[in-house]
Write a protein that binds this DNA or RNA. Structure first.
Lengths: 192, 192
DNA sequence: CAAGAACGGCACGTGCCGTGCCGTTACTGT
DNA sequence: ACAGTAACGGCACGGCACGTGCCGTTCTTG
């Protein structure tokens, strides 16, 4: 008769899975912790014990997807490595089925400092660090000018993508990624 | 004994003013239409009659500030014109006292398509168009290479700024604007 | 000056919040 | 093996803001 009550990490994972599931169905705005608890067959306490807010829960749920997925190759070909890496990230987070939830999460970060900090520490900064490290390796091997500004380069690679994703809300295609990469490395055409 | 009941445009303006006021005090998350109505001495209907949502109300409130403020000079010096324009925009929207509300508005746009569309049509696109137009003028005068990609240039100018504002949440300084402008026009250093 | 729209004030039902309490179940250390 | 404890599901609660009615009053329009 024991109803196979689940425990510990099991539950955590089940809750996160349910969060992504319900989030896709309802959208972030209509997603409620009450509904997640009901769907997951879980008491609300069990959720509140683990996460302080809906945003934190969604953050963990989404990051559990990316943690294993996003590596960073170094084949020696800088441009190709960057392209590979950015394609992966863009496909995972800006494509279906998680694009809307990821955008909502960044939205939540705009008025929840905790979410903002966690998002930075656990996703943005590591990703940026890897990009900068890959650029630095290329510079150290004299494949880039010694005065190449790594941080600005990284911002130019990321900025326009997030601009498209969050502001103009146009689709993030590989073709667009290529245009940014081209602009960064071959320049926008010399001044007359 | 007539209690000087206000009407029409008067009210609209008063509500928007109260929205900005209360928004600064409470932050967007805790800002409620109920509280705005109470503070403004107005029935909730009067607000709902004008705006469909809190986001739409905040959008109008914030845009009423920028509409008159953000011009676009053409002195002939492209770099200086861009710098002037971007400084202005950055100071107005990314500096106190409206930075937090502006960020919250963009956050709202992530799960309210209406707000997203209105934000684009009434603020982002006009601003981008002006930038592109200014760049195009320079290119037409042979101050830029004929194959200078105007749209990508515009994205490289805006993207990193929004990236800083929304993602890494670092302060948007004039110095940072300068670094982006430098990178765009003098390049990041040629490849070895 | 009459008709109607817009107004402020109030009340209502609804949904979700976050918390407290219950009895039950699974883990812990000895 | 077994007691003690922590975590669990379920339920109920007060609180708050939502969005919508209704009322009586005031302003605008023709």
């Amino acid at each position: 008769m024991t109803n196979a009550r689940r425990s510990g990490p099991d539950l955590t994972e089940a809750i996160m899975r349910t969060t992504l599931e319900l989030g896709q169905e309802l959208g972030y705005a209509k997603l409620s912790i009450e509904a997640i608890a009901a769907r997951a067959g879980v008491g609300k306490h069990t959720i509140y014990r683990r996460w302080p807010s809906k945003g934190a829960l969604l953050l963990d749920s989404l990051l559990s997807l990316s943690e294993s997925a996003l590596g960073y190759p170094d084949t020696g070909d800088l441009l190709m490595d960057l392209r590979t890496q950015i394609y992966e990230a863009v496909d995972l987070l800006a494509g279906p089925p998680f694009s809307a939830l990821f955008k909502a999460l960044i939205g939540e970060a705009q008025h929840d400092p905790g979410v903002a900090a966690a998002l930075n520490e656990r996703f943005i900064a590591p990703q940026a660090d890897k990009t900068v490290a890959r650029l630095k390796a290329a510079r150290d091997q004299d494949r880039l000018s010694p005065d190449f500004d790594l941080d600005v380069a990284m911002a130019i690679l990321s900025g326009p993508l997030y601009f498209r994703l969050l502001i103009t809300q146009e689709p993030l295609t590989h073709e667009y990624v290529d245009r940014i990469l081209d602009a960064l490395f071959t320049g926008l055409g010399p001044r007359a």
